[in-house]
Design a protein around this nucleic acid. Structure first.
Lengths: 215, 215
DNA sequence: TGCAATTCTGACTGATTAGTCCAATAATGA
DNA sequence: TCATTATTGGACTAATCAGTCAGAATTGCA
């Protein structure tokens, strides 16, 4: 009766199955729309029976949400890690952009799935953008950023990040990611009102630092 | 035999059914993904028989492409009309952004469909962005824009436009479109390197002019 | 009015799908 | 070792869907 005895150690079987479903969904959603992927496709790719799918998720949408949440959490964690201890709002902004782009370049499949799954409910004030909003607000308060509302600043940052990722996921990547990244972060910071030399320096610093970090 | 005799005046019946299908598809695609809309849904909404659908389009994708093309052409035409005779690249850019946003605000359904249908094959060098690219290149050549590549400039412009439209289609429109529009165009021009006072003036001018034009 | 050309119609088919259900299975605790 | 429990697997069903086709309807023309 005590569900604890079973729940506590019960199963890593369950966790394994769930992970397989998430991974299969990630791979499939990176290539096709949610509606175009059938649950049969998913369980086939995950090497799991159909009944098991419904044991973990109510339907396809639930799986898609779980995947979107997981990917977003992963990207968010990387950003938070890179910005731990960084106080200057403009520098935080630059680093966040660089990390986000790096994430997409390093995990193109996950990023593709993220883009697709956010196409449904994308921009508003998703938890992921709380950080962006806070940095924009702080930058405006400190005077680093000037001349626009928090709302507009957030939108610009999101627009640049979105467009950068979409561009870098278009395999036609003649341009190296870092060069584009430098330019876009520079342009974003300048657009937010940072003086030009500082915008260039912070953008380059962030790209150099973030893209060289672990490797 | 002479196909002309029939083709020339033959049918506005055909045109009517085609238009009905396009309109129905527009309405449905503005609310649901392409895969989520069935051909039965479309012919029901268009009040047309299923056979007629295949008389005009090979499949659902063909309809979606036709719709995307039509909407894009309409937006493009408005931009071209607003920029006829305007030479200054920065001013052209500002006006194009304002017109694009105005188009989305005035035709939310069409805009929603456009956003959804471009989510598939969005950014690269679609014909629509030729104009943007030309203006960015001209601005860089004239020295109005500074410090970044054409590619980056185009991406920034597209990012701002995309994010603005997405934001304004989120019915939670606490902010009036024009205020957001002013801010975003200002931020974009400043990001592209235009001196700050000019960016502000051009943005405000464009918004005032475009949003008051016909009404 | 009647003929010819073409589009429209909607019932039909074969295939696919989401979701159900219960017997087989594996893990745990005593 | 054995009983208990939850997970798993995959066959099954009912519904939906894309695409077809032969006849009806409409239009242009003589």
């Amino acid at each position: 009766m005590t569900p604890d005895t079973t729940d506590v150690k019960t199963d890593r079987r369950r966790a394994r199955t769930r992970a397989a479903l998430l991974q299969a969904g990630e791979a499939l959603f990176s290539a096709q729309s949610v509606d175009a992927v059938s649950i049969d496709d998913i369980v086939l790719a995950a090497d799991v029976a159909k009944g098991s799918f419904y044991n973990h998720f109510a339907d396809k949408e639930a799986l898609a949400c779980a995947i979107a949440g997981a990917v977003r959490a992963e990207a968010e964690a990387e950003i938070d890690a890179a910005n731990a201890g960084v106080i200057d709002p403009a520098r935080r902004m630059a680093r966040a952009q660089a990390v986000f782009i790096r994430f997409a370049v390093r995990n193109p499949e996950r990023a593709r799935a993220m883009v697709r799954l956010f196409a449904s409910a994308p921009l508003p004030n998703a938890p992921m953008n709380r950080g962006v909003r806070a940095d924009v607000a702080a930058g405006l308060a400190s005077g680093d950023f000037r001349g626009l509302t928090v709302e507009s600043g957030v939108l610009m940052a999101m627009g640049v990040a979105t467009v950068a990722v979409s561009r870098l996921l278009d395999e036609v990547e003649a341009a190296p990611a870092t060069a584009l990244c430098r330019d876009l972060i520079f342009g974003l910071l300048r657009g937010l009102g940072l003086p030009e030399p500082a915008a260039r320096v912070l953008g380059d610093e962030a790209v150099d630092d973030i893209f060289r970090e672990t490797h």
